[in-house]
């Protein structure tokens, strides 16, 4: 997946635990773990909105796009 989630870094900056975020956002820890470990295939706008609201950040602060193919092409 070329989209990566860097939730742990923002959580560290805000000094918030995953459990606390889970309670505030209303998403189960299991689902937040899926998001954090990069296993998630999709994220609902409502979830993203809630996370951004609680962490006081932009979607771009937690979602990153790494074009793996482009990196490989550049190396070749």
């Amino acid at each position: 997946m070329t989209i990566s989630v860097k939730l742990d870094r923002v959580l560290l900056d805000r000094g918030m635990s995953l459990t606390e975020l889970s309670e505030r956002v209303g998403v189960t820890i299991a689902n937040l773990s899926i998001l954090k470990t990069g296993k998630a295939k999709a994220i609902r706008f409502s979830t993203l909105e809630a996370i951004c609201k609680e962490l006081n950040c932009q979607p771009g602060d937690i979602l990153f796009f790494d074009d793996e193919d482009a990196v490989v092409e550049a190396a070749e």
Partner: peptide, 8 residues
């Protein structure tokens, strides 16, 4: 189902 389960 897999896609739905992995949607947060």
């Amino acid at each position: 189902k897999e896609e739905q389960d992995l949607t947060v």
